[in-house]
């Protein structure tokens, strides 16, 4: 075993290298997450709290605002993540062609949204989707709509704007991962399949997708974690409105803690909902990816 080969001074040195990071992780990650678990069983406001058992969990089931935040978060997750990943895959497939004219221009352009801060691009989207804004002007001009869409004032369209915004920001990011993975695939496999008469869609579905599976899994896990924590965009574009139609779990935790009289215990319970969801969804994604081999 490796352990036996390590000398004593080597052991000490090894610990010294990793110790600062471990101490900090203990203080700012392990301790807070355990504290939060303990807090989620406390009720009360501010720093006056007492043990409430499962009172907070009961409160979750009776809290319409929480349920709306949970539903909204799931809608964003279920609608946005697949659209974004399919688009990213599509762009990567189109760009994975060394003969394509203007390839690096297209790649750079599609990746460019990734350099903006979440707040900065949210402000841009908020101004573009104003009632008489440039997006409505464009849609009216090309005749796609007859009357302006109340993007930010309507519960349905406000969700659409948030989904469009996140898709704009992150598609290029995911595309880069797919592109890098595609460039590692041996081209001769495609030529062999083509000569055997395998049609293009089948080559994509039965060759490219299975070979990209680890990367697709990786991107869907990180996108899921990201969407479950959605905050900056909704806070900037809609502030959760209109009438809580874009309220997310993170925004609700923030409101519970910092907008109203702080309710640390209940906010911790809501935050554990996110922890549990991340755990369950990551697990499902791993299982699905394994079964489809």
């Amino acid at each position: 075993m490796a352990q036996a080969r390590l000398g004593r001074s080597e052991q000490i040195n090894g610990w010294l290298f990793v110790m600062p990071a471990l101490v900090l992780l203990g203080m700012f990650m392990i301790y807070p997450i355990l504290w939060s678990l303990w807090m989620s069983f406390q009720t009360g406001r501010g720093m006056n709290f007492s043990f409430g058992g499962i009172a907070n969990i009961v409160r979750l089931t009776q809290d319409p605002v929480f349920q709306r935040a949970l539903t909204n978060t799931f809608i964003f997750l279920i609608v946005q993540v697949p659209i974004m990943l399919v688009l990213a895959l599509l762009f990567a497939a189109a760009l994975n062609d060394s003969k394509l004219w203007g390839r690096s221009f297209f790649r750079t352009a599609i990746f460019l949204p990734c350099v903006t801060s979440l707040v900065a691009y949210s402000i841009l989207f908020k101004s573009m989707f104003a009632n008489d804004g440039v997006i409505n002007d464009f849609l009216l001009a090309v005749g796609l709509i007859a009357t302006p869409i109340p993007w930010l004032a309507d519960p349905f369209w406000a969700k659409v704007v948030v989904i469009l915004a996140i898709t704009w920001r992150w598609t290029g990011y995911n595309m880069i991962f797919y592109l890098a993975a595609m460039q590692n695939i041996d081209r001769s496999i495609y030529e062999a399949a083509r000569i055997d008469g395998v049609p293009a869609w089948a080559r994509f579905w039965h060759l490219t997708v299975p070979m990209l599976k680890p990367v697709i899994l990786f991107t869907s896990v990180i996108s899921t974690i990201g969407t479950l924590q959605l905050f900056d965009e909704v806070n900037t574009i809609t502030a959760g409105g209109p009438s809580d139609s874009t309220l997310t779990l993170s925004l609700y935790i923030y409101n519970l803690t910092f907008k109203f009289m702080p309710s640390f215990g209940y906010a911790s319970t809501v935050s554990y909902v996110i922890v549990v969801l991340v755990g369950i969804l990551s697990f499902i994604q791993f299982v699905v990816a394994r079964d489809r081999r």
Partner: peptide
């Protein structure tokens, strides 16, 4: 320990912000 750290990679910041603030 390293394996445990990788698991912690999926702890969302939303779950840490309340305790970190109180801390």
């Amino acid at each position: 320990i390293f394996g445990g750290m990788l698991l912690m990679l999926s702890i969302p910041f939303a779950a840490l912000m309340v305790p970190l603030f109180v801390m």
